[in-house]
């Protein structure tokens, strides 16, 4: 188990390093184009060159990379090209917003999908068909569109929930939760649809195993067979699916934060991309990959713990 964890940790570290470096290098290879994007179409070549020199882009790539990498490891992701703010600080302020959105959505997805997926596999019939329809709907409707429909219905027509904005948890937990209801609903509906499908498939798969028949032959009630044995065996595949969904949810914040005007890293990456703020985008990409790596590590630990073959090592 220890060796397994150490390997995972190493591989996660390498992943962050590779993605960070690759992004840095690809973004730097295009020379002064980013500066032109930054200054707009009308800037003269002199203006572009001057700004590039000011940003240190005239230095050789290996040197710039080394600088960036060394500071990045120390937690300094550089300064914004647009307003000279510290990238690390901006991310530090905005990350909690995005994380509360994504974690809440992941939890909602996990609870709803596991309950629905297992119920659909065991009960079949109407519930099963409902889950299939839900899956197609959740998959076909873009989350930002769902978000807009939710806003126009619950916030504009019914005035039940706030349409936009974010209240920090520390300011007012009630408002914080209320403000997250619509974004989480919009973000989670798609992941719930696909996760439920996969949990259902995993459960059907477990139910077809011979050992389920043997458990029934021992006279155990089906409540405990499903609740103990089926749940435990379907948990591994479900966790793996959830870890992939987490990445999808993280990407989803880009769109959802814009609709609900939430001050997270997702909306930041959009505005930075449009403004051509390279260090900011690079910093956000790196931090997001770190988050994904940490989550994958946690999932690996959990699946390893669930799987006796891994645990025994």
């Amino acid at each position: 188990m220890f060796v397994f964890l150490a390997r995972r940790l190493m591989s996660g570290f390498v992943l962050v390093a590779v993605v960070g470096s690759l992004t840095f290098v690809t973004m730097s290879l295009s020379g002064t184009d980013p500066v032109r994007n930054l200054l707009g179409e009308n800037a003269t070549q002199e203006q572009v060159d001057a700004r590039a020199a000011q940003l240190g882009l005239d230095r050789p790539l290996p040197e710039r990379y080394l600088d960036w990498a060394v500071s990045a490891v120390q937690g300094d992701l550089g300064t914004s090209w647009v307003n000279n703010a510290s990238v690390s600080q901006v991310i530090g302020q905005r990350l909690p917003v995005s994380l509360s959105l994504v974690i809440a959505s992941t939890l909602v997805t996990a609870l709803v999908s596991v309950a629905l997926g297992i119920a659909a596999a065991v009960r079949k019939g109407f519930l099963d068909r409902l889950v299939q329809v839900l899956a197609v709907a959740g998959y076909a409707l873009p989350n930002f569109w769902v978000a807009l429909v939710l806003v126009s219905f619950f916030a504009i027509s019914l005035r039940l929930l706030p349409a936009t904005g974010y209240t920090p948890l520390t300011t007012d937990p009630g408002k914080w939760a209320l403000g997250l209801v619509l974004p989480v609903a919009a973000l989670a509906i798609g992941t719930i649809a696909s996760t439920t499908q996969q949990v259902r498939a995993a459960t059907v798969d477990v139910l077809e195993h011979d050992f389920v028949r043997t458990l029934r032959s021992r006279g155990l009630p089906s409540r405990s067979i499903v609740g103990v044995h089926v749940l435990r065996n379907a948990a591994g595949p479900a966790l793996t699916v959830l870890s992939l969904q987490f990445v999808a949810l993280l990407a989803g914040t880009v769109v959802i934060e814009r609709v609900f005007a939430l001050p997270g890293v997702g909306s930041m990456v959009v505005s930075s991309a449009t403004a051509g703020d390279l260090p900011m985008v690079l910093g956000i990409v790196t931090v997001m990959v770190v988050v994904v790596v940490v989550v994958n590590l946690l999932v690996d630990v959990a699946t390893g713990w669930l799987n006796p073959k891994v645990r025994a090592r």
């Binding site: 992004t23 184009d33 991309a273 985008v281």
Partner: peptide, 17 residues
């Protein structure tokens, strides 16, 4: 698979337009 797709595409758009 561990890279959020929309984010990385936005990163490329920053550079390439």
């Amino acid at each position: 698979m561990s890279i959020p797709n929309l984010v990385i595409v936005l990163a490329f758009i920053t550079v390439l337009g």
